[in-house]
Nucleic acid binder design. Structure first.
Lengths: 213, 213
DNA sequence: GTGTGTGAAAGTATTCACAGCC
DNA sequence: GGCTGTGAATACTTTCACACAC
């Protein structure tokens, strides 16, 4: 069986695949060569049937009575997740958070290639922030036109985030990872994901506060 | 495992409440005093029924035929989310990301009070990182014993994250917000939430790659 | 025997649609 | 007229349980 289309893959499955991948890579580095759905489920904190069901959307990767070969399951998952290629990224916002991400080289190893950083503050433009010089946001459109940019990572203040997202999407960037504390919107067919510190803190607050309201 | 959750509020509702709150605060600062579920839904990108259903788990906050009073809905949501009080936090890991979070004062305004930062590297201990001096992780247990710490924010490398989480939870911290790229586990009744950059990037990769696998 | 792959069942979440109130 | 609050309906997700392969 070949050519599963991913519009039938449940949205909830996708982030789990990346957690399976990470755990499998960790197991591989410790010398594990075979794993059952039960062992992997234990390691990532889920149910074995969840894992088998998730994998079943993409193919049959296991051997009955045995389990999964760690190395080949890693390869399959990377293929499913589109990690058998390189994605070009830019970071917009060269503050502390943007700089932290630029210097976080771990994801370069997974195929995310940081092409450049942009900021609007004269004080940081031209400075080195782990990936060449910081460019002016004025140059965004030109840069996107002459380089394939797959993912724009937004680490600007909330006040300018949506405007910058609109600009990069209009210039042709197909996806956005937004760290600014706004609910960003993009025009179809572009896609956006949010990383939202304050929502996570407030969720903790809710569960800590379990006699309130 | 037996997961005893708060009341009967769906887990999916909780993070949405914080997004409603953020948008309402933004609307209030622009002078809006009344809002209908349709207007709020439009602003946050969801369905009006979703909002009414989410709010209905906590009470009846609206006026039929009119909508919601922005100011009083803000107050109600803050109460529901436990934001009518102060939560004490610490940051463990004084690298770029930890420092970025420490300097991000926006969440101080929502009632999250940063008590201190901890690191294990001699080079940063004692340095100023936006909130007094960075303390040694050796002092964690003493600090937690003598100060009420509600939330530990983990911004360390993956290799030491789970060990530090185990230590702070054992010392009595009831909740953890983990930025390290591991799937952290905590012993009941402590709670943990993950902010996972690489999972988000890989999810984008999956959807960008829509003819793969 | 062991463990996968998968329909069916159970459990959650979202959306509809309308009664009731302003 | 408008809009909320909510049971009912739909859609989605997880878990069960067992046929089947090793």
């Amino acid at each position: 069986m070949a050519g599963n289309k991913n519009h039938s893959v449940p949205a909830a499955t996708v982030p789990r695949l990346s957690r399976y991948l990470r755990k499998l890579q960790e197991m591989q580095s410790r010398g594990t060569s075979t794993v059952s759905s039960r062992q992997l489920a234990e390691a990532v904190g889920t149910n074995p049937a969840q894992i088998r069901k998730d994998l079943s959307y993409f193919g049959e990767f296991g051997i009955r009575g045995v389990g999964y070969d760690v190395a080949s399951l890693i390869e399959e998952l990377k293929k499913c997740l589109g990690l058998d290629r390189t994605w070009n990224t830019i970071i917009i916002g060269a503050g502390k958070l943007g700089t932290a991400l630029a210097r976080y080289r771990a994801f370069q190893k997974q195929g995310f290639n940081l092409l450049g950083m942009f900021d609007s503050a004269a004080a940081v433009i031209g400075k080195s922030r782990g990936v060449g010089h910081v460019k002016s946001t004025d140059e965004l459109e030109d840069f996107i036109t002459s380089n394939r940019v797959d993912i724009a990572i937004i680490t600007t203040p909330a006040s300018v985030a949506q405007e910058l997202i609109d600009r990069v999407v209009a210039a042709g960037v197909p996806s956005v990872l937004n760290f600014a504390p706004i609910r960003a919107h993009v025009k179809e067919p572009a896609i956006v994901r949010q990383v939202d510190l304050s929502t996570e803190l407030m969720s903790l607050s809710f569960y800590l506060n379990n006699q309130g309201c």
